[in-house]
Design a protein around this nucleic acid. Structure first.
Lengths: 337, 337
DNA sequence: GGCGGGAGTGAGAGCGCTCTCGGGAGGGCG
DNA sequence: CGCCCTCCCGAGAGCGCTCTCACTCCCGCC
């Protein structure tokens, strides 16, 4: 490998075009205030030499990096390997590249790795951060706030101390979506509606539970069982549910994975879906929701758009004093309810 | 936001510790050749001031960036939202952070976006690139090679011209795994074994087909149907298969998603799995393989390890003239075969 | 025709770091 | 006891860029 092909510098371009470094710099950065013939000459020199600006030198003086960090604080592989996150990432990427920004991905590897991420962010390597803070007790948000760089959170962060009121975040309308789901079940004439929650240390799970309660009121406590967003959790919860309340006729599962577990247990027990028990999920996670038997009725959120929006908010700067943006959800009707 | 908290510089640390900039630099970068009392004093000063090196300034002189790019050339959202890729990413991330490298994620958005990526890589922003080149006709590998930065490919790239012999890549033993899968079916006493291929513009699909042929020889051409790695493709292919050869008693699907589609069609047609038709997949993509009915027997590849290995090879440098590394696969026996 | 002003360009000072080089201190050996 | 060599440390020169500032034109106006 001929590693050391010395890349041309501004100086070289200037020499070739017969102008000063400053002028080349001006042309490269938009060309305002440079007369046409010169612009043309510089452009040609850039072309001929294959000049590409040295980002490090540029950052050194501008203190901008045209890069933002995406921080995923997730010890569990499962959630990371989730199509959900991938889609958000795609949305983020689209928005960033549209604004010539790079995406630096920071995954925390275990508990004590937070310090590393905090240090990195504080180190001024990036212009901002998009953070997915999935758990209530996550120390990361605090660290990041201390780092003092602009940040947008994915999902409503669940602060415990009162400091987080001015936090910018993008979330789905978990509560409203849950309401729609449960209302749909009720609209089908179901009266014994159960709920398998998500992991309740995540705000999305809490909000969905709230939505369930909004519609069902102070329902029989046995109809609410805690799950953890996994199929296995859904199975466990569904078994408990059938055991405690054999007469249920509908289940609102906190997400599609949970629903898929529940469906399997229902089938096992000979309950027909949706005839005996209607089932509705949340997320509209495609490979899952379409593959279940029967195909899953669920609540869709526009995940890619969430990612996009997060990036947009971050790049816009503090902006219109928006603290939280909540995206709407829609009911997707398939066969299970 | 108090944006402008001027971060301490080397200079500041030097002043506080009562030494020169050079000494601080030495301590920060390992501390060789500095006597203990001084090291201690500098360390304390760094601590007290919360000093973090300015990476831009450092890169400017060292020409290293401690960052590598991960390039995903995938127009289709589906493959990107694939747990497969997420796991590789995780492996890569682990290895990189272990060596204090950052991960810059580059997703191409459509066809003409390749130029942007090529420019970025050529621009010397990163020390190397990990590239997932999923299609045979992808122009990206060429662009990258021209960029002249160290590169490791994920999956054997399917060069058409003869230039790619010295390419470094990491791949699973697709062919060997396929052989194991088919042998397993044969070992169960199945004789009419069909194969639903993956998208044949990807080397992994081609290799798996080769593996199938290795065992089955010049089998009845109707037993091989082209799929595309999706459940829908699996369904289509399975229908065709049942139509053309109603007497098949085993199916080797190119991946788990395909297998899940096939299973659904088999159930639809009243064929019992594995009694009437044994089914085996590939990948051991967990949320899928465990959720099918019946749970899927499949070939596992250690995806995270692939990612790790890619990163390791890249960081090691050109190394031991390794051109391609192929990781073993294992049979995971569940209920479907 | 002289003068004020705006627009276009160049010179030069850094941004914060690394790294080479030279000087000074100290130890071993003749 | 002196010399040389080694080991530490500091001084200073950039890395490639941006940005301010001053200078030069040239136009328009009185």
């Amino acid at each position: 490998m001929s590693e050391t092909v010395p890349r041309p510098t501004l100086e070289a371009v200037a020499a070739r075009a017969g102008v000063s470094r400053a002028t080349v710099s001006r042309v490269v950065n938009g060309g305002d205030g440079v007369r046409e013939p010169l612009v043309e000459r510089v452009r040609r020199a850039v072309e001929e030499l294959g000049y590409v600006p040295n980002q490090a030198a540029r950052s050194l003086v501008t203190r901008r990096h045209d890069a933002i960090a995406v921080v995923v604080a997730e010890p569990e592989t499962r959630v990371f390997a989730d199509p959900f996150f991938a889609l958000q990432l795609r949305g983020i990427s689209k928005e960033l590249t549209a604004h010539d920004n790079q995406l630096v991905l920071l995954l925390t590897e275990g508990r004590d790795d937070h310090a590393r991420v905090g240090r990195y962010l504080a180190g001024g390597h990036v212009d901002g951060a998009l953070v997915f803070s999935l758990h209530l007790d996550d120390p990361l948000p605090g660290l990041i706030q201390r780092a003092g760089i602009p940040t947008v959170f994915g999902g409503r962060p669940g602060w415990r101390d009162g400091t987080g009121d001015d936090v910018v975040y993008v979330d789905s309308d978990n509560r409203g979506g849950a309401r729609d789901a449960v209302r749909h079940l009720v609209g089908l004439g179901r009266s014994r509606v159960a709920h398998i929650t998500g992991a309740l240390d995540q705000t999305s799970a809490v909000d969905r539970l709230e939505g369930f309660r909004d519609v069902m009121g102070d329902v029989d406590a046995r109809l609410v069982v805690e799950g953890d967003f996994t199929p296995a959790g859904g199975e466990r919860a569904m078994r408990a549910l059938l055991d405690r309340c054999p007469d249920i006729d509908a289940v609102f599962a906190a997400n599609d994975l949970t629903a898929s577990g529940a469906l399997r247990v229902l089938r096992e027990h000979g309950r027909r879906v949706p005839d005996d028990v209607a089932v509705i999920g949340f997320d509209d996670m495609l490979p899952i929701a379409e593959q279940t038997d029967p195909p899953l009725t669920t609540i869709r959120q526009d995940i890619e758009e969430m990612g996009r929006l997060m990036a947009r908010l971050l790049l816009k700067g503090p902006g219109d004093a928006t603290s939280g943006v909540v995206l709407p959800t829609t009911l997707v009707r398939r066969a299970s309810a």
